[in-house]
Computed example of a mutant assay.
Amino acid sequence: MARDETERPGAERWVPERPTTSSLLEAVQDCRGCELWADATQAVMGAGPEGARLLVLGEQPGDREDVEGEPFVGPAGRLLDRALADAGIEPGGVYRTNVVKHFRWSGMRGGRRIHQSPKSAHVAACVPWLRAELSVVRPAGAVLLGGTAGKAVYGSRFKVGESRGRLVDWPSSLGTADAPGWVLTTTHPSAVLRADDRDAAYGELVADLRVAADALGAGS
């Protein structure tokens, strides 16, 4: 297998020194921390209230997110909103973002670009953006949607099934000054949409999110 020698300097040099939601939204459009910017329509920064008590972290923008410039506006995002509401969490009060800010895709199917999972190198290059978002939002808790988000926070050995639905600590390796007080991992809504038994998978997602809702209600 040929060695990947693509230059990926990481996003640090493009992150504002004193970030705000508006400055991050502007600065991310200039990011050249990895090669994904070249095939994307635009970078997609997180969206939501600066003082949101809950941050939801997914993998990367999808086809619709890349076009519209906002996270979680496609089918998976609509399902997430419904699941949050069913779990007792007001969707409008959640800050939602992705580990990787540019859409990675390969080929077309039915007029839509085919999603391609980001490499660990893309995730590593984008981590400075997540740190900056945490410094702005300072959420009480975080929900990680799926394996890519989990590995970005906890490393390559992370598996969703080993901690799903439980409150765990934010790792010290990513810094703790602006870290959420607890983290909950669950499946990505796109996995629910692909599930053979969608109703059961949706119920499990809502059950996980209720754990987060209880933690928020308890002021944890």
Rank of each mutant, 00 (worst) to 15 (best):
A195L: 02
K151R: 15
R131F: 02
A83T: 12
H122W: 14
A85W: 14
D63F: 14
D81F: 13
K151I: 05
G111Q: 02
A215Q: 04
G69W: 06
V100E: 05
E26D: 07
P139A: 02
C126N: 15
D169P: 04
V56N: 08
A212R: 06
A140E: 13
A212Y: 04
S173K: 14
D81Q: 15
S106R: 14
S220A: 14
H188L: 08
D196W: 00
A2I: 13
E5C: 06
K119R: 15
E70C: 03
A47D: 14
A201L: 03
G77M: 10
A140I: 01
D196K: 07
S135W: 02
R164E: 00
Y95S: 13
A152T: 04
A125D: 01
W129P: 12
A142H: 00
A207P: 04
R164D: 00
H188N: 14
L25T: 09
L144F: 07
V143E: 01
P49Y: 03
G155E: 11
P16F: 11
L25Q: 12
R198D: 01
E90V: 09
V94L: 10
H115G: 04
D208P: 00
R32C: 12
P91F: 03
A83I: 08
R166K: 14
W37Y: 15
W14H: 12
L174P: 01
G46W: 06
G48M: 11
P128Y: 04
A201P: 01
D4L: 09
T186S: 10
V67A: 15
S135F: 01
E65Q: 06
G92L: 08
G48L: 07
V28H: 07
A124I: 03
V137G: 10
A83F: 09
E17G: 02
L24A: 06
I114T: 14
T6W: 11
H115E: 07
T148W: 01
W37P: 04
C34E: 12
A83K: 08
D169Q: 10
V168K: 00
L167G: 04
K159R: 15
M108S: 15
D39E: 13
G69I: 09
A52H: 05
